[in-house]
Computed example of a mutant assay.
Amino acid sequence: MNYKNLICHRKPERSFFIKGHQFPVCARCTGFYTGLVIFLIYNYFYEIDYSPNLLIISVILMIPTAIDGFTQLFEFRESNNALRFITGLIGGLGLIIFLKIVIKWIIELII
């Protein structure tokens, strides 16, 4: 089993290249990881109110990624790397916010 595929498919046609070297993950995953890092850095410096409204916003932020991914998967259209990166970035922000809210609520239930 190829464990690298568990993180990302790494298809060359869906990845960025710098000086002939392929990124370790595809364009969408690059956006996801960038969004995660940006949010975690922001969250380190600024306090965030993890409210139910923010949970709804986080889900809304993940919708463009799902639409882009599924419409490409079912061959309704072909995406491009710029769009994959942007939807991945937005989705990464939504995902990390969603996870932080859920984890915070679980911890509050336990304590």
Rank of each mutant, 00 (worst) to 15 (best):
I7K: 01
I110N: 02
V59Y: 01
G88T: 13
I90D: 01
N2F: 03
K19I: 06
T87W: 13
Y33T: 01
I41G: 00
I60V: 15
L6C: 00
N43R: 15
R10Y: 06
I63E: 12
I103A: 14
G92H: 04
E108V: 08
F45L: 12
I90N: 02
I57C: 02
F85Q: 06
G94W: 06
L93V: 09
L61C: 14
L89P: 00
F39K: 04
T65A: 15
I63P: 01
E47D: 15
I106P: 01
K4S: 05
S15P: 07
L54T: 10
I67T: 00
M62C: 13
A66Y: 09
S51N: 12
F45Q: 03
L6Y: 02
S51W: 07
K4L: 14
Y50S: 05
L54K: 07
I38D: 09
P52D: 12
I106W: 05
K4H: 09
F98T: 06
E13G: 02
V37G: 00
H9K: 05
R84K: 15
I111F: 09
V102H: 03
L73Y: 12
I110L: 14
G20W: 08
G69E: 04
M1L: 15
L95I: 06
F16S: 10
L93N: 07
G91W: 08
E47K: 15
L36M: 11
I7R: 00
Y46W: 07
I107R: 04
V25L: 05
D49R: 14
G20L: 10
I103W: 11
H9I: 01
G20F: 04
H21R: 15
L40H: 00
Q22K: 14
G88Q: 02
V37F: 08
Y42R: 06
L61F: 12
L55G: 12
W105F: 10
K11C: 13
A82Q: 04
E78L: 10
I106K: 05
I7D: 01
F32D: 04
L89Q: 02
T65K: 00
I90A: 10
W105L: 12
N43I: 12
S58M: 11
S58W: 06
F70N: 11
L54Q: 11
G92C: 03
I97P: 02
T34K: 07
Y46M: 09
I41V: 15
L61W: 10
R14V: 04
R77Y: 14
G92D: 11
E13A: 12
L36F: 15
A66W: 10
C29Q: 08
R10N: 14
